[in-house]
Deep mutational scan, measured.
Amino acid sequence: MPSETPQAEVGPTGCPHRSGPHSAKGSLEKGSPEDKEAKEPLWIRPDAPSRCTWQLGRPASESPHHHTAPAKSPKILPDILKKIGDTPMVRINKIGKKFGLKCELLAKCEFFNAGGSVKDRISLRMIEDAERDGTLKPGDTIIEPTSGNTGIGLALAAAVRGYRCIIVMPEKMSSEKVDVLRALGAEIVRTPTNARFDSPESHVGVAWRLKNEIPNSHILDQYRNASNPLAHYDTTADEILQQCDGKLDMLVASVGTGGTITGIARKLKEKCPGCRIIGVDPEGSILAEPEELNQTEQTTYEVEGIGYDFIPTVLDRTVVDKWFKSNDEEAFTFARMLIAQEGLLCGGSAGSTVAVAVKAAQELQEGQRCVVILPDSVRNYMTKFLSDRWMLQKGFLKEEDLTEKKPWWWHLRVQELGLSAPLTVLPTITCGHTIEILREKGFDQAPVVDEAGVILGMVTLGNMLSSLLAGKVQPSDQVGKVIYKQFKQIRLTDTLGRLSHILEMDHFALVV
């Protein structure tokens, strides 16, 4: 994948999101292997301009796509893939009243899908469409860049269908997702969380590099694949309309690839034109409109599966009536509230959605109805927002919020430890010299600072030695090549209790 991002070429006709291997024109390309080798690009942008032909009021008969309808489940399912879809609609009884809503608040519980998330729908649909058009064949390999849930859905379907599955996901995604993927037989590649989507090191860039190296491999490409919004247009939206008897006044959905909100909203605009569509985008993402909503100094966020630093091709923002931004604290607070007060075992993005819903639905009156999409299960986040310690460490809970008995030293300040200034190293000294210094002084790690004293990161003896043994660096290389740029900081005025929580999850903390 090139470091400079080429513009994806656009073909003359058809839909841009065809499933299957992508040609340089962004659509299915038939021909000899030699032709494909000559024409197939190194990668295709996940934010390529959409060429979708959908228009409100256009006859369904003019759609270029294969459409399906929700099917009634048999008493005995032939395999677990038949437990994807037909998820329950559940009334939220307490939270709406707590925040003064007059309307009825309903939750579409997508964590009841077989793999635990709304992404099971698009995973199965992308595979079925690729099999139907002859792209996927027995023994082929599926590769997908994902925040985890699409990966789980694909790995689940691949396990049943017999495909090899490789999932490329950023490091910030939970260990629970990784464990589930491994249990399903998927191979996992992790990428830096802070890598831009168009960087060769991003999950998108690495996935395309693997595709170019592995024979008979395919990126189904949830960011561009029409099967993504079509899955929701054909099934999720129809289920909502049936469950609500066609009567709903507002739908609120958090947005990642945009397939969920695009597919549902398009069908609702056709069948229930008075329904307002509300999009939820986390602070630090750029999906919301108008652009002024996205202006923030924050560039990272903890909530998973929603928000991006690019506009995915499948996201149709014209069908969203209003956007709201959400933050991590309210997302996790509301997710825990949904679990504790409503018994809905949902993930953090569901918290984002409901946090926005109780604001947006203030305009609705008694007798009206708001539906929220709860995308995934708490299963993926047992060591994250479900953990009091994690919430404390991230600053989303305060010590006084917890009532468990603490040891005698818990409320003492870090400054009472009488710490001395640490050994520091410059980023320009060599790895070999740094190892000598650390061994001589008896230290395992040291902060790396520039000549102005600005902290650049941390270097550890173990990481340097393993990097040297693996051949990633040489003793003569500058130590700046092996620094940890993500590390926890703590102030002298913070409590030892807070430091204790940090050290339970990290090997060190830097006192500043």
Rank of each mutant, 00 (worst) to 15 (best):
I219C: 02
E128R: 02
G20V: 15
K75Y: 07
V178I: 06
I214W: 05
S175F: 08
D129W: 07
L56T: 10
K72T: 02
R125T: 04
L210I: 07
G263T: 08
S217G: 09
G31Q: 02
L220W: 07
E176N: 02
I261Q: 02
H218G: 02
H232C: 02
C244T: 02
R276F: 09
A48T: 14
L210H: 04
V252D: 11
G153A: 02
A48F: 10
M173L: 15
R266G: 06
K25N: 13
D238Q: 02
E270I: 06
D129L: 05
K94F: 02
Q55E: 10
A183V: 04
H22F: 14
E9D: 13
A186F: 02
K72A: 04
E201F: 08
L124F: 13
I264N: 11
G57C: 14
M250S: 02
R190V: 08
P16N: 02
L220A: 07
I122N: 09
F112C: 02
L124H: 06
N113S: 12
G151F: 06
H22G: 04
K75V: 12
H65V: 05
H218D: 02
S27R: 07
H67C: 09
E131G: 08
L81C: 15
Y163R: 06
A183M: 07
G263A: 02
L154N: 02
P21S: 14
N216M: 02
C275I: 14
L230S: 02
E131N: 13
L184R: 05
Q243T: 14
I261P: 04
D35L: 06
G263V: 04
Q7N: 15
C15I: 02
F111C: 07
H66E: 05
A159Y: 08
S199P: 02
K75S: 12
K25P: 10
C165M: 07
A114S: 14
N194F: 13
P33F: 02
I240P: 05
R266Q: 02
R161C: 10
K82L: 07
K25F: 08
A114R: 06
E144R: 04
S117D: 02
G246S: 08
G85H: 10
T191H: 05
P215N: 02
P16L: 12
K30F: 02
L181K: 05
I95K: 02
L184W: 02
Y163S: 02
I166F: 07
K25C: 13
